[in-house]
Amino acid sequence: MMIETQPLEPLDRAALPARVAALAKEGWRLVQICCSCRDAYEVTYSFDREGRFLNLRIGFSKEDPALPSITESYFGAFAYENEMQDLFGLRLDGLKLNFHGNFYRLAKKNPFLDPPAAGSPGASPAASPSAPSAEGAPRAAPDPRPT
């Protein structure tokens, strides 16, 4: 079995553009940007150079959902950044190709921002179909598993 070593470099939000610009100069390819949000935002930028893998991780609180855009160095990041903007409600400063929340046509604004289910993390909605949903937001219908 192959498990890749995946270095994870914690980084401050303000230092991101400079760090990314340096990576771009060194010829790294932007692999992906992944945002996740439980109690706080956590955004991971992955880069690759000739098979080597590098991750930059930025964490910040839910109170201040803003990030500097890296489209200056990597234009291709616009897709990821628009995605984060739509799904997680982040504000991207300096985004070069901004769809202003219309990159995805979503039924609900920022759908990935909610915690997954009421109560304990990962609680199966099928197990507790009548549990009140968090923040009063209507949740997707529980699995119509017959009982």
């Binding site: 992906q32 439980r38 234009f75 291709g76 990821y80 997954p116």
Partner: peptide, 20 residues
């Protein structure tokens, strides 16, 4: 997170990277 449900799952498909 140690439960049978994942905390975060993400897929970056090749087409997504090939759009720009």
């Amino acid at each position: 997170n140690g439960t049978k449900h994942l905390e975060r799952f993400r897929v970056r498909t090749p087409t997504f990277a090939n759009l720009p």
